[in-house]
Nucleic acid binder design. Sequence first.
DNA 1: CAGCATCCGTCGCGATACTG
DNA 2: CAGTATCGCGACGGATGCTG
Lengths: 129, 129
Amino acid sequence: MSAEEPTIAEAVLNAGFDISTCPVRDVMDHIGGKWSSLLLLVLSTKPHRFGELKRAVPDISQRMLTQTLRDLQRDGYISRHVFATVPPSVEYRLTPLGESLMPALTALVAWAVDNHPRIAEARQTFDAA
Amino acid sequence: MSAEEPTIAEAVLNAGFDISTCPVRDVMDHIGGKWSSLLLLVLSTKPHRFGELKRAVPDISQRMLTQTLRDLQRDGYISRHVFATVPPSVEYRLTPLGESLMPALTALVAWAVDNHPRIAEARQTFDAA
DNA sequence: CAGCATCCGTCGCGATACTG
DNA sequence: CAGTATCGCGACGGATGCTG
């Protein structure tokens, strides 16, 4: 049964991918957002407060930070803890589910770092024509 | 030097991530597109012609198929081979660079398949409140 | 400090029609 | 068969100002 075992790609493809049930779309469409992966990466080092996240990702707007954090929370990647202090503070941290995603995500990031020069080169070559 | 070795996340974060140089953004922003990962997945099984890709991903528009393929080609993930037959046929296949990406990408896909139920559950819980 | 509300521009993406 | 061209909408996302 090992000789003709379908690859992961084949398995997913053969399952068909209706937009409502396809895990690839459901997951990729969310962590593929403009800020999601970056925020997950930041939170993977340690829990952060709202302001810390804003400073860690300088060019994110307050609006998108709030919205992206809520989306990540909704999907169960991160948790939100409110401390009723004065002034108030809110801490965000990865959930176990979020942590379980990190190996795969960092693998992709590591690939990106390694192959970034090659991509830049490919782009130059393509644009030259 | 192994005790305090920075993680991949820390390394990327400490390097700062200007929008022009950050590999995470540069790569994620592209393969995070609506169709990119799906097409790469399809092409990872074997080379496909334009029409085959269209049938393999039924709900993609011709416009987005053309555009996404061109973007993937520009970044060096796939190559395009024209056969001057009648009628004409064009074959797309992964480049070595594209193939080198697949392990990391399929790892993410595998995670998505495994944890899809958990995400759906998290969403339900969140939306209930 | 940690948001929410509003306005507004950009662009991703689909639908349709046309071409070599 | 494998595209290109044009149109249009809706979502994404930035800037600004207000609140508990």
